[in-house]
Amino acid sequence: MKVGMIYSRIRAEEKLLLQALKDRGIEVELLDDRKMIFEISSGHRYASRYQDFDVVVERCINHSRALYSLRILNDRGIKTVNSADVAAVCGNKLETTSALAAKDVPTPRTLVAYTPESALEAIEDLGYPAVLKPAVGSWGRLLSRVNDRHAAEAILEHKEILGSYHHSIFYIQEYIDKPMRDIRAFVIGGETVAAIYRTSPHWITNTARGGESTNCPITDEMRDICRKGAEAVDCWCSKSTTRWSTETASSRPALISPTRWPNLF
């Protein structure tokens, strides 16, 4: 088997993946996305460049590079982990929430608006605190917990002038309280293989923002919600963030977001 791995940086995760593949005797070719050239039209110099791979693992840091690479490869019959369709949905919180809700997977109440005025109306309807997130983004960046109308007005004004059209798509979500931690679960082939608590006194628990990870025992309830989440986005290999709200009257789990990257370890 010949595996390609598209990467942007070699970090601890990429090294672990490479070591795991090596341990299994699998040949891996590293593909630096800064040097890749894709030939979209057939019959030219680079047209068959990636045809020899049995599967390509995508580890781009740039979301846009990942989506285009996967689309071009899949359209030419090259298998990838994950697929372009899955990455398109799971790399975008708005599309993910839509897919989860359409399949009745429990998610926080979510509203979408396109102008600051309609976004403010949506936030007021949702109530405070509310959460504003960019549809595309990771590592807890540019998340806003909106505690009152004054904060909402200020944040919406700031987002409007950030310049990128992404910030004028207002993705507004119910705030889910958490008992100091949420849960990140890892799903492969529909099976929840591992989970971690991400503990932080801050409302953002991303490990990139200081959240501490510890082992989380997998429960049947967790297996069920994670399997449904992975099926809803047609994702073979995913990680999902879940908040079990135990400090509110409406105690319930809410699957927040599968993510684009596969985690094979």
């Binding site: 740039n62 979301h63 983004g137 990771s138 590592w139 993510t259």
Partner: peptide, 23 residues
């Protein structure tokens, strides 16, 4: 830093974080 060469070893500043970086 990014190890841009291993023979000989060469280090360069790692790329700055861009807006669509993530997972």
């Amino acid at each position: 830093l990014e190890v841009t060469s291993i023979d000989p070893i060469k280090l360069e500043l790692a790329p700055e974080e861009e807006e669509d970086w993530g997972e």
